[in-house]
């Protein structure tokens, strides 16, 4: 059971949150992106062994959609994409 830092509420139990998945690049302009780029954006999800930027929805708390960096090897919530330490 992780502790997830919510910018409004502080650290809260993982069970208060819904997982929102890794953060993908910004949505491409659907009129400008090539088919390949669009499909790539849709289907390629970051899945690193190490820090990943991901979204969580504090659905049972204040309702904030927040972003954290979590090290997939350790569950440590880390600062930015730097070393998990």
């Amino acid at each position: 059971m992780m502790l997830i830092p919510c910018p409004f509420c502080g650290h809260r139990n993982e069970s208060e949150f819904a997982y929102g998945g890794p953060v993908k690049p910004d949505r491409p302009d659907p009129h400008a992106a090539s088919d390949e780029d669009w499909v790539d954006w849709l289907t390629t999800v970051p899945n690193p062994l190490g820090p990943v930027e991901e979204r969580w929805w504090h659905v049972k708390g204040c309702g904030t959609w927040l972003t954290i960096w979590r090290d997939t090897r350790t569950h440590c919530v880390v600062e930015g994409s730097g070393d998990a330490g």
Binding site: M1, R12, N13, S15, E16, K60, G61
Partner: peptide, 25 residues
């Protein structure tokens, strides 16, 4: 409720949405 409701962590004027028996509360 998984939240720490001890008076040092959750004082008299505290109020929050959290979880109670698995539901938002």
């Amino acid at each position: 409720c998984p939240l720490d409701l001890h008076e040092t962590a959750f004082p008299e004027d505290a109020v929050t949405f959290t979880e109670f028996f698995g539901q938002k509360a």
